[in-house]
């Protein structure tokens, strides 16, 4: 039988990827039909990327809200396993990410570091899922006959503006503490380096992560920031290296429903400073529970 022609890399016509967004576990295109062009450092056309609209954001928040009940109620151990699974999937597709990043202009060394550290970071937070409670909880010795304890609970739906200068690690470093704490999120990827974010959505899609827990949009901060900040069903917003005026705008818009606002500014994500259980605790609410303690008769604990 004759061999099929053109299977050599040099001769073969490459199949180009359509970069879509990741919402509710699906990979739709933006409802707006808009796109923007991402070019390589040489100016070559790399991809047409979705320029998401406020309606895409609205749909993503809906997906995140729907996913919140199930994700926050999962056993912490199970959340840890799923984060670990994401790391496994990423490990398996390492070369694809390195390829995409070098095309977008990162050096091979930088690209390798981004991916390797992203995997490490996911594993770091996989381990925290069932441990930060022990760190942040207290049993409070109240003066009355009550048992009283305080423990963290996820804040809810979080909107995230990922760092612009990091294609993958920044996004992963901001996402992981949010979801390891049982929150769900909508992330706006770096508009400069959106390709890895979209591909990372595909990793998430094959990682046992329920649809809607993480939603990744591509587009522009200036257009989407107001909606990320003022949506009444979003409980918190995390910012990265946005400008002072953007941050002020986000804070002002967040007032409508008293969103928790956190900015992770000037954090070098490749260092130890880029990971901490305190990032998880930022997106946690402390709940204190009281219950009476019965103490009848003279019986006391004794040795």
């Amino acid at each position: 039988m004759a061999k099929i022609n053109n299977t050599n890399d040099e001769q073969r016509l490459e199949v180009l990827k359509t970069y879509k967004i990741y919402v509710g576990g699906q990979f739709p295109r933006t409802e707006s039909g808009r796109y923007y062009v991402v070019k390589s450092k040489n100016g070559d056309h790399l991809a047409n990327v979705c320029q998401c609209s406020r309606k895409d954001f609205r749909d993503a928040v809906l997906a995140a809200r729907n996913a919140f009940g199930g994700w926050s109620a999962r056993a912490a151990f199970n959340r840890g396993q799923i984060l670990y699974r994401i790391a496994e999937m990423l490990e398996g597709r390492k070369s694809q990410f390195v390829d995409e990043m070098t095309k977008q202009g990162l050096s091979l060394k930088q690209a390798n570091e981004e991916v390797n550290l992203s995997i490490e970071r996911l594993i770091y937070y996989a381990g925290w899922c069932d441990k930060y409670h022990a760190m942040a909880s207290t049993v409070n010795p109240v003066a009355s006959s009550h048992f009283n304890f305080s423990s963290p609970e996820p804040t809810g739906v979080v909107s995230v503006l990922a760092p612009d200068d990091s294609p993958l690690l920044g996004l992963v470093s901001m996402m992981a503490p949010i979801i390891s704490g049982g929150n769900t999120c909508v992330i706006l990827a770096s508009s400069k380096y959106p390709l890895s974010a979209v591909t990372f959505g595909e990793v998430l899609g094959t990682s046992d992560l329920s649809g809607g827990v993480v939603n990744i949009l591509t587009g522009f901060v200036d257009e989407l920031l107001p909606y990320f900040a003022d949506h009444m069903d979003v409980n918190a917003i995390t910012l990265s290296d946005q400008s002072e005026s953007q941050v002020t705008l986000a804070k002002e818009k967040s007032v409508f429903n008293l969103k928790r606002v956190f900015q992770y500014k000037n954090i070098n994500w490749i260092t130890e400073k880029g990971q901490s259980p305190y990032f998880i605790l930022d997106l946690q609410e402390i709940k204190t529970t009281w219950h009476p303690i019965e103490n009848i008769g003279g019986a006391k604990a004794s040795y």
């Binding site: 009355s144 006959s145 009550h146 009476p292 303690i293 019965e294 103490n295 009848i296």
Partner: peptide, 8 residues
């Protein structure tokens, strides 16, 4: 029968 909470 009805229950009683001691502390209450």
């Amino acid at each position: 029968t009805a229950v009683v909470d001691q502390v209450g």
